[in-house]
Design a protein around this nucleic acid. Sequence first.
RNA 1: GCGCCGGUGCCCGAGCGGCCCAAGGGAACGGCCUGCAAAGCCGUACAGUCGCGGGUUCAAAUCCCGCCCGGCGCUCCA
Length: 463
Amino acid sequence: MIRLYDTLRREIRPLAMRDEGKLSLYACGPTVYDHPHLGHARQALTYDVIRRYVEWTGIDVHHVANVTDIDDNIIDRANREGSTEPEVAATWEAVYDTAMDALDILRPHDRPHATEYVEQMVAFIETLVGNGSAYVTYSGVYLRVHAVDDYGALVHRSVDELREGAGARIEVDDTKEDPLDFALWKAAKPDEPTWPSPWGPGRPGWHIECVTMSLDVLGDGFDLHGGGSDLVFPHHTNERAEAIAAGRDFARHWMHNAMLNIGGEKMSKSLGNFTTIQDLLDEHPLNGRALRLLLLQTHYRKTMEINPDVMAKARAGIERFDAMARKAAAAGVSITGAEPDAAAVDAFRAAMDDDLGTPEAVATIFETVRRANAALDDRDEAAAGLVATVFDLAGALGIRVGDRGADDAPDDDDDAGIDALVAARTAAREAKDFAEADRLRDELTARGILVEDTPDGPIWRRR
RNA sequence: GCGCCGGUGCCCGAGCGGCCCAAGGGAACGGCCUGCAAAGCCGUACAGUCGCGGGUUCAAAUCCCGCCCGGCGCUCCA
């Protein structure tokens, strides 16, 4: 049984499932109008890992993530580029998908789009207006926050405390009864796309889409809702308020991943200190896998720093996995049918079940790598089981081992030339002409190729 | 200001009352292996104050109080 920290109750508790053997998970997805950055990667990866792990334990997961394809930023961009909102959204959703694919992040099972749900959102808002928890002004429809008893529960703040902050930081809109009240529906403004509604043309507010879509796709009382910690307030607080005000049973468990820091500050769009996923990927072929390893080596609820130094170290970790895979392959060890190491698997599960303890889980895998290498060196028959364990556990976290295929663009012509050089070097070594052998190795090194001599013959790879 | 989270070796980062004179990764050093390497394995040095000061306890990195420092939220934000 997995235990997870619940943001609402502020404690680690069992992740109960509404339907036995099936986990319903909703993670807030991207607003598509620009390059996704490393912070988006951490968010998506957190939920990718919980999904992969839960599936690995034999439980079905229904993973849903929305795509926000209409909002202020999209409208701005469309207006600036003389484009249209659907075009902007489609363009950047594709970019987002490419980046996530490159990070081995599985696509959610369902990806509802806000613009496909406007009618349902309108119906939802009608319910809220109908039962008196929302009101209509000339600028839109607003949720009456004091209609919700424990409004600030998720952020652990009283309505008064929140209002104090709001009064100081937000421009008070005199059409609202309370500064904390927030828009469910925004009345049409010039140069904006609109949809019809009982309150006139306009567009939905930010939070209403997630409530409507999560409840529609997963149903009332779904298991787990997550997102970045910066969404706790106002986004998730407001989603929850909408559901409660509508008398719906919302998420039973809330989880939030921590932020990424760069130079001691939160990586964010507004600060402009972000690295895009694509830029990181372009820097080094191993970066995709290295980023996953790096992120997994820190607990998801802990703020972490990301910089070139820690990326390089993570790459070294990936190389360690790959080296074991090469060694196993060279020794002809087959993992099919091999019995995994029970102690390692147990330790791995114990770590993961305790609030997604990926740092410890990764430590267990590295420990198994060391044992596997030792067994391989000793030609010990236990090697196959240990290697199989590494592949199995790494797979449960989405870490590809030994597969550089997707990282290196294959180049058959080039490969033939390299093979020839390696063969020439082997011949020189057999003739004890070590000067020539070393010269050939230097030549290969100059081409970015690393040659390793093993008892089973030389192998080479790009670095 | 209010709320939340964190400060652990050279670096990153687990641990959260006894199994900790503190996991794992990276870097360093020594040995084995190698023609030499690389990779791997074995070993060593780093945490003698686990931010600082009190307290609780037979026992604290782990609990409580105060302080210092950093981050996040209170605004679009993953």
